[in-house]
């Protein structure tokens, strides 16, 4: 592998995100900025994959499913930076006749995407289905899924949680982006998640907590989850993050969940994010 996960890549991905949403005056920068380290860690250090020869079936590869599809900008940036598709396609994000749809989709054939997402709550179930197929095939590969903390309000998540524990699905590692924010306000105000870790424990999952902005901490969490294969217990990583991380005026508020910066705000944001690998 040519590059390893590093703050250098993370900084460039953050530049990509704010430039993508600015260019079309739409999209979801907040959650995207908050999950940069996880995506970079998974795609540059952890996952077994073949970026240049993408197949929908992904046999003998690790698979990633983004359940909270609205944070597509971070995924697109990382997929592209990792070599799944040409960097210049990031400029077509959310535009007509593009493979880089507002929410991840398969219809246009963008390499790296295996199922559409956007309507929340479905990704864990999809991941479990893929995990069952991997088990039937006897693979020692992994399934990764990512979810928003607000997404925990969807009932289907808990259907899937029950299934995974009951069926002892231990080839999946799921992450929750715990930024405490959702569109209408904080999760605490909108519909409190209360003790999320206790909920997952009660549903029969092994709960790991980590700092979602530390590549090392994420690495340790993933190592711990992987070491538990064979336990018959699925693992969930509660990843503490800051929505809008890296751009001071976007940090820690739901206000930047789904709006794009204007020209002035873009300049301000870019001044805080070093161009390390070259803008697209």
């Amino acid at each position: 592998m040519s590059m390893q996960a590093s703050p250098t890549i993370c900084s460039q991905v953050r530049r990509d995100i704010v430039r993508m949403v600015h260019a079309v005056s739409s999209g979801h920068p907040g959650g995207s900025l908050g999950c940069v380290e996880l995506f970079v860690k998974l795609y540059f250090d952890v996952m077994k994959l073949d970026a240049e020869n993408f197949t929908l079936d992904g046999k003998e590869e690790d698979l990633f499913f983004l359940s909270n599809g609205h944070i597509s900008p971070v995924w697109y940036s990382v997929l592209s930076r990792r070599g799944f598709f040409p960097l210049k396609e990031l400029a077509t994000f959310r535009k007509l006749n593009s493979r880089v749809q507002g929410h991840p989709a398969t219809e246009e054939g963008l390499p790296g995407i295996r199922v559409a997402s956007g309507s929340l709550g479905q990704g864990l179930s999809v991941g479990l289905g893929a995990a069952e197929t991997k088990k039937l095939a006897g693979e020692d590969t992994w399934i990764y899924t990512l979810h928003g903390d607000g997404e925990m309000q969807e009932g289907q998540i808990w259907e899937a949680a029950m299934y995974a524990a009951h069926r002892k699905i231990d080839n999946i590692i799921s992450f929750i982006d715990c930024n405490g924010q959702q569109i209408d306000g904080s999760t605490e105000d909108v519909l409190s998640l209360k003790d999320l870790g206790a909920k997952w424990s009660a549903f029969g999952w092994h709960v790991i907590k980590c700092d979602g902005h530390s590549l090392d901490d994420l690495g340790s969490a993933i190592d711990e989850a992987k070491s538990r294969r064979g336990s018959g217990v699925p693992c969930i990583v509660l990843m503490k993050t800051v929505m809008g991380k890296g751009v001071d005026f976007m940090e820690g508020t739901h206000k930047w969940h789904g709006i794009a910066p204007n020209d002035e705000q873009l300049a301000d944001a870019l001044s805080q994010l070093e161009e390390t690998l070259g803008d697209y």
Partner: peptide, 28 residues
């Protein structure tokens, strides 16, 4: 039995799981 998946009273999970199971070539 190894190709039969009882999901319980959880149809939403069943449908999305079926979608996931196709990835890798199964026909759910």
């Amino acid at each position: 039995p190894e190709r039969f998946f009882q999901v319980g009273i959880a149809e939403a999970n069943m449908m999305s799981m079926a979608a996931g199971m196709t990835i890798g070539g199964k026909i759910p």
